[in-house]
């Protein structure tokens, strides 16, 4: 099977067969694992970003001198964010099993894993987006108020456009963190590339597969970061 020999059999290169021989899993398995990872990453990011944004707004508006200055709400959100962020994901994952069962009905599969993933990532994204929102100059918000803008208009027409480029970078950082968490979630029954690496690669001493998954994850992170930087730079182009 030496491709350099140039005979007819080598010309009819069979990729699935080659893949199975080299990595000891079917190519479809890799694709479905990738699908699972993207599924968990995508939905986890979307739901986590929405919840995170709400938490970030509460942190920004309820803080001292903020628009809704409210010591109690700020303290509650602040402590919640700190507590969740200080818990390792694997602990959060097990800890919220009852909640996961309540919401999804089961504690395995990629959909079920979204519950701990969102709980894990939203405070992290909240902290990052809080910083982005705090970068918006108080003068802009004052100008908005002076124009008679409602709170909703202040958020959508002034703060979001001003902070968007910074928020995109924050989300990029958050996504990379979330990718790490999906590997653990996968191991606990969610599937995905991380699960592939651990159960098929590590436990079966399948070194080529382990390396392949690492390459895929590295490329994935590079791609995400590149995309995030590009979008952010585009948004910042005229600043």
């Amino acid at each position: 099977m030496n491709p350099a020999s140039g005979n007819a059999q080598a010309a009819a290169f069979d990729f699935p067969v080659w893949f199975k021989q080299t990595f000891d899993i079917k190519f479809e398995k890799l694709l479905s694992s990738l699908g699972d990872t993207v599924y968990m990453l995508g939905w986890g990011l979307i739901i986590g970003a929405v919840i995170g944004f709400i938490l970030a707004l509460l942190l920004v508006f309820c803080r001292k001198g903020g628009l809704w200055q409210n010591r109690v709400v700020y303290a509650v959100v602040n402590v919640y964010v700190n507590i969740v962020r200080s818990m390792p994901f694997i602990i959060t994952l097990v800890f919220v099993f009852p909640l996961t069962r309540l919401i999804v009905g089961k504690t395995y599969g990629s959909t079920a894993m979204l519950v701990p993933l969102v709980i894990f990532i939203s405070p992290y994204l909240a902290r990052l987006m809080e910083n982005s929102l705090l970068e918006v100059s108080p003068g802009i918000i004052e100008a908005a108020q002076a124009m008679g803008a409602t709170t909703w208009q202040i958020i959508t027409r002034f703060m979001l456009p001003e902070a968007l480029s910074s928020i995109v970078l924050a989300l990029t950082t958050g996504t990379v963190g979330l990718l790490g968490a999906t590997a653990m979630a996968g191991y606990a029954g969610g599937g995905g590339v991380g699960d592939l690496a651990l159960t098929y690669g590590y436990q079966r001493y399948n070194l080529p597969l382990l390396i392949l998954t690492i390459v895929i994850l590295v490329l994935f992170v590079q791609l995400l970061q590149l995309l995030g930087n590009k979008i952010s730079a585009r948004l910042r182009a005229h600043r």
Binding site: G139, A143, Q145, A146, P161, A237, H238, R239
Partner: peptide, 17 residues
């Protein structure tokens, strides 16, 4: 407030727009 315009020292414009 819509009947009262305000101008600022630091302009307070949306720089990226």
């Amino acid at each position: 407030r819509r009947k009262i315009g305000m101008v600022f020292q630091q302009f307070n414009l949306l720089e990226g727009k």
